[in-house]
Simulated assay, not measured.
Amino acid sequence: MMIGLGFRREMLDWDMSAVQADFFEVAPENWIYRDLAPLHALIESGRPVHLHGVALNLGGTAALDQSFLRDLRKLINALGRPLYSDHLAASGDSHQLYDLFAVPFTAPQARRVADRICAVQDALGMRIAIENTTWYTNIGTMPEADFLGMVLERADCQLLLDLNNLSVNHKNHGGLSPSEFVQRLGMGRVSYMHVAGHEFDPRFDLFMDTHSQPVEAHTQQLATRLAERHGTPVLLEWDNDVPGIDVINEELSCLRTSMTT
C-alpha cells in the first residue's frame, strides 16, 4: 500500500532517503518561483511528488487568476504532470486570505463551483482533484456529502478525501460519522486520502484542523479499512509543530503496519 507524506520547509535539511514514504505532496504556491531540485531529487528516487494547492479560490466569486494558472501548468509539466488538487473552499476574492472558507451547501452553489472547476481543468489540460474541507459555520441547506457528490459529478473531477476533516466536522457539528459519510459518497472518484491530527480550542469551543498532532486511532483505522478495500493511497499531513524525522517515520510506520497486518 502506498503511504505518503506532506513535504514541508522544515524537511528541506532532512536526509529524505531516510523518510519511509512512498510519495510526497507539496503546495505549488511555494514552488512556482523556486529551485525545483529538491522535488526532482525525490522524483528521481522513485517517489512521486503531487501538488496540493491552497490559493485557487474555487469557492470564491472573483475571476480565476489566469496568470497563476499559467504558472501552475508550467510547474505541473516540469514535474511530469503529477496529480494536482485544491480545496473546495474560498480563499479570498480581492486578496489572498491564506485561510479557507466554506461554500454554502446549496444546489446553485454546487453548480457554480463545479463550473469553476471545469474552467480550471480546461486551463490546465487535465482533471484535478478537490479536497473536502473543515468548516466552522455554514449557511447551506444540503447535507455536505450530497453537496460534494453533486460537485464531483457535474465537474467530472476527482476527490482528495480528507478523513481528518470529516472527523473534525463530525465532532463540531454532528451529522454523519466519517465512515457513514464515505459510505454515502462512495470511493469511486477518490485519488488518495489525507490523514492528520487536530486539537480542541477552548477559546472557540471547537475542534480545530491544526495538523499538529498524531493521527487519531479511529481515523487511522478508517483509512486502513478503505485502503485495504479500495487500494487507495494514504498521505500523512503534519503542518504545524512539525516533529523530527523519527516521529514522522513512526507515524508512517503505524499507517503501513496497520495496513499489512
Rank of each mutant, 00 (worst) to 15 (best):
M2C: 11
L5H: 09
L5I: 06
F7H: 04
R8K: 11
D15H: 13
V19M: 13
V19D: 15
Q20Y: 05
D22T: 11
A27N: 15
P28S: 15
E29M: 04
E29L: 14
I32K: 04
Y33E: 15
R34Q: 05
D35L: 05
G46E: 09
P48N: 02
A62T: 08
S67W: 10
R73Y: 09
I76L: 07
L79I: 03
G80H: 09
L83S: 15
A89V: 01
A90I: 03
G92T: 02
Q96T: 08
F101I: 12
A102V: 13
V103N: 02
F105R: 01
A107H: 05
Q109N: 09
R111A: 12
V113A: 03
R116A: 09
I117K: 00
C118Q: 06
A119V: 04
M126H: 00
M126Q: 11
I128P: 00
A129N: 04
A129L: 11
I130W: 04
T133D: 07
I139D: 12
T141V: 15
F147H: 00
M150S: 13
V151Q: 00
V151C: 11
E153H: 14
C157M: 01
L163M: 08
N165K: 07
K171M: 14
G174Q: 07
G175R: 07
S177K: 12
S177Y: 11
P178Y: 08
P178K: 09
E180S: 10
F181K: 01
R184F: 09
R184L: 11
G186Q: 10
H194E: 11
V195Y: 02
A196K: 02
A196Q: 01
G197H: 00
H198N: 12
H198Y: 13
E199R: 12
P202W: 10
F204I: 08
L206V: 04
D209C: 02
T210M: 07
H211N: 09
S212P: 01
Q213F: 07
A217P: 08
L222H: 05
A223M: 07
R225H: 10
L226D: 03
A227D: 05
E228D: 15
G231E: 05
P233G: 01
V234F: 09
L236E: 03
L236K: 03
D239L: 05
D239S: 07
V242R: 05
V247K: 08
S253K: 14
L255W: 05
T257V: 08
S258K: 08
M259K: 14
T261V: 14
